[in-house]
């Protein structure tokens, strides 16, 4: 098995035929295809890459999970703790921002941040850009994105009843959230 493992800088032998697309962990220099990670190169379709399950920084189109830390009329700040399904080490969270125009796809001008998120909510979002020096820009403007876990004022875990509302099972009160469509529905 050790022959399959490659080290950074090691050339990767390619089969005859068209050169595959290069994915993560592979680079090309002076016409040679080389590895830049320790691992076993493998094909996903026509892309040759070395897969890594180690935590990495968010990039555009990463799906992230995070909890809301701060709300303002213009934006909600979240602390990103999971990137593409890989949890980050504790204390190494990235900060993301959901701007008011990125909360939902329709009626963007009527969005009220306070009616969509509350502090402590766990949100699933999509990174749209690297943003500014402090934070990544995250959007929830898709059916499957939004709040996936929230507690009510009385402290119980709420369940979604529509894409804009959640109900507290203890008191029966309805609170407003921008909910994510539950998986498998």
């Amino acid at each position: 098995m050790s022959s399959d493992l490659v080290l950074p800088g090691q050339p990767i032998p390619l089969p005859r035929g068209p050169v595959p697309q290069l994915g993560s962990g592979i680079y090309s220099r002076d016409g040679n295809i080389r590895a830049s990670l320790v691992g076993i190169p493998g094909y996903e379709g026509s892309t040759l890459s070395i897969s890594r399950t180690r935590p990495h920084a968010p990039s555009s189109n990463s799906i992230v999970l995070g909890s809301i830390t701060r709300l303002s009329p213009q934006q909600a700040t979240l602390s990103i703790s999971v990137v593409d399904g890989v949890p980050l080490p504790p204390g190494e969270e990235f900060t993301g921002v959901i701007r008011v125009q990125d909360v939902r796809a329709t009626e963007k001008d009527r969005v009220k941040i306070a009616d969509c998120f509350r502090g402590g909510d766990v949100v699933k979002g999509l990174v749209i850009s690297l943003g500014d020096a402090r934070s990544y820009y995250v959007t929830t403007a898709r059916n499957d994105l939004g709040v996936i876990f929230a507690t009510s004022e009385s402290g119980a875990t709420m369940e979604p009843v529509s894409w804009q509302e959640m109900r507290c099972p203890r008191t029966g009160r309805i609170e407003k959230r921008k909910c994510a469509k539950p998986e498998g529905l």
Partner: peptide
């Protein structure tokens, strides 16, 4: 760095 899984051109 290699152990941390950080991409490098070579060791």
């Amino acid at each position: 760095l290699a152990d941390a899984g950080i991409e490098m051109l070579g060791l």
